[in-house]
């Protein structure tokens, strides 16, 4: 038992990342990973699982981590891919029995029911956005990344990102204006 610290110390000399090193490396962006995961997977538990999975993947590849120039951007890309994969396999599992028209009616019903809690309502509107727009809104408006960083993370050019972001922001404004005027009525 008392051998362990000695041996671990020995291993740091060989430039192997320790748990403390890893935690301090991951600390600044683990919440961002979690929030992106939650944006895509919606449920908190699923987002927590995904975050854990991603941190473990990073930990298992810690020898390679030091080779990456930007661990944070790499992690965000990984999170995006991981969550999209999850969503795909989920969609494959759950056959959609409900017709899409029916779903839309449901959401407009929700509109009326939850118009009052407008902040909560914003998250619902964002949920309805296409996944790519969701990701971009999350990275820009919540996490405040520069366009150059987002373009690296998503492997898209900046113009395409701006177009998608503009679309997302317009949709949000339109839906919020509608909700707001409903609220006044």
């Amino acid at each position: 038992m008392f051998l362990i610290p000695e041996l671990v110390e020995g291993s740091t000399n060989q430039k192997v990342m320790t748990q403390a090193d890893f935690v301090s490396l991951v600390m600044p962006f683990k919440d961002k990973v979690f929030r992106l995961a939650k944006r895509l997977l919606v449920s908190r538990e699923e987002a927590e699982d995904a975050t854990q999975e991603i941190l473990l993947k990073l930990w298992n590849n810690k020898q390679k981590i030091s080779d990456y120039k930007n661990v944070e951007a790499f992690s965000m890309t990984m999170t995006k891919n991981f969550c999209l994969d999850r969503l795909k396999s989920k969609q494959a599992q759950n056959l959609k029995i409900v017709h899409s028209n029916y779903q839309e009616k449901g959401s407009s019903l929700q509109t009326q029911l939850e118009a009052r809690d407008s902040v909560d309502w914003v998250s619902r509107i964002i949920e309805d956005l296409p996944e790519q727009q969701k990701i971009i809104i999350q990275l820009r408006d919540v996490e405040q990344y520069e366009f150059a960083e987002i373009s690296k993370m998503l492997d898209m050019n900046e113009t395409a990102i701006r177009v998608a972001l503009s679309r997302a922001r317009k949709t949000l404004r339109e839906k919020l204006t509608n909700t707001h005027s409903y609220g006044i009525k």
């Binding site: 748990q19 890893f22 683990k30 919440d31 979690f34 927590e48 975050t51 941190l55 473990l56 930990w59």
Partner: peptide
């Protein structure tokens, strides 16, 4: 924020 512990 993410508050769960990760078993490293």
């Amino acid at each position: 924020s993410y508050t769960k512990d990760v078993p490293l």
